[in-house]
Amino acid sequence: MRQLFFRRWYVFLLSTALLVGLPVGQASAQAMQEPAPEGAAEVRASDPYEGWNRKVFRFNETLDRWVLKPVAQTYRTVTPNIIDRGITNFFNNLQEIRNLANSLLQLKGESAVVAAGRFTYNTVFGLAGFFDVATAFELPERPEDFGQTLGYWGAGSGPYLMLPLLGPSSPRHFGGMVTDIVVLPSAWDAVESPTDLYARGVQIVDKRADLIPAESFISGDTYIFVRNAFLQRREYLIKDGEMVEDPFSSGNDEDLMLEDF
């Protein structure tokens, strides 16, 4: 048990070095430029450390520009679409164990059944998850993580944080991410180190490559765009799809609605 605990921490710490810039593209990919309706729930996070956060954001962007993005662009060029989609499906399928565990912790029986069904169908009939057959069986993914679990039970988000390498976060989100990796059961347990580290690297490069087209969504102040997209996305997930208003938007900024994907 102790060996498993430290192995997870080892993989977590090393794999974060490959996460540079990923949250920037991810936030833009999940943002849709549509106004939030009146009466929608408000995101109650704040950004008291904006000066420091912007410095970290520039650091992450620089490393992404010179390290991760070039690798992702090469990967996108040489990988056939069907292989690229299959790799994405494979890694998404591994997340279903996390979705199942957190659905149970949030007392969401239906979501737990969906997660278990998706993992079973995709593993058995989808060649270990290479094909997403569960969606064809009308079992769309319902992402759940421990940060959402904390929010479900009333834990506050805390201030907005831009973390070196890890990107947009908050105390609740970061604590949930660490818990998911270190404590909760995962399909990654079946993968032995150092193979798991290599697999994490492929997962991150694949994700970054998939997000390259979404960079065209970014407009205006990139830092504010990413911050708004992240905060709304997290609140959207915690409230199971309820749309939220952006407290940081001004008369010159467009509101964002984040869709589940």
Score class of each variant (00 low, 15 high):
1 M>L: 14
4 L>I: 11
9 W>P: 10
14 L>H: 12
19 L>Q: 04
24 V>N: 14
26 Q>S: 02
34 E>S: 11
37 P>M: 04
38 E>Y: 08
40 A>M: 09
44 R>F: 01
44 R>E: 07
45 A>M: 12
45 A>S: 13
46 S>G: 04
46 S>C: 01
54 R>Y: 02
55 K>D: 13
57 F>N: 04
58 R>Q: 03
59 F>A: 07
65 R>D: 12
67 V>N: 02
72 A>C: 15
74 T>P: 04
75 Y>M: 06
75 Y>W: 10
76 R>L: 05
77 T>P: 03
87 I>L: 15
93 N>I: 07
98 R>L: 01
99 N>H: 08
100 L>D: 09
100 L>A: 08
101 A>N: 07
112 A>N: 09
112 A>E: 08
113 V>W: 06
114 V>F: 03
116 A>S: 13
117 G>Q: 13
118 R>S: 04
121 Y>T: 05
126 G>F: 03
128 A>W: 01
129 G>F: 08
131 F>H: 13
134 A>V: 10
134 A>C: 11
135 T>K: 10
136 A>M: 02
139 L>Q: 15
141 E>D: 06
142 R>C: 04
144 E>Y: 00
144 E>A: 02
146 F>M: 01
147 G>L: 03
151 G>A: 08
152 Y>H: 09
153 W>N: 06
155 A>L: 02
159 P>T: 01
160 Y>M: 11
160 Y>S: 06
167 G>I: 14
168 P>M: 08
168 P>I: 11
176 G>W: 05
177 M>I: 05
179 T>D: 10
181 I>Y: 09
184 L>K: 03
188 W>I: 04
189 D>L: 11
190 A>Q: 08
191 V>N: 03
195 T>E: 05
209 A>L: 12
209 A>E: 14
211 L>T: 13
214 A>S: 14
214 A>T: 04
231 L>Y: 06
236 Y>F: 08
236 Y>W: 05
236 Y>G: 05
237 L>F: 15
241 G>V: 05
242 E>H: 02
244 V>W: 00
246 D>F: 00
250 S>T: 12
251 G>R: 09
251 G>W: 04
252 N>E: 03
255 D>V: 06
256 L>K: 01
259 E>W: 05
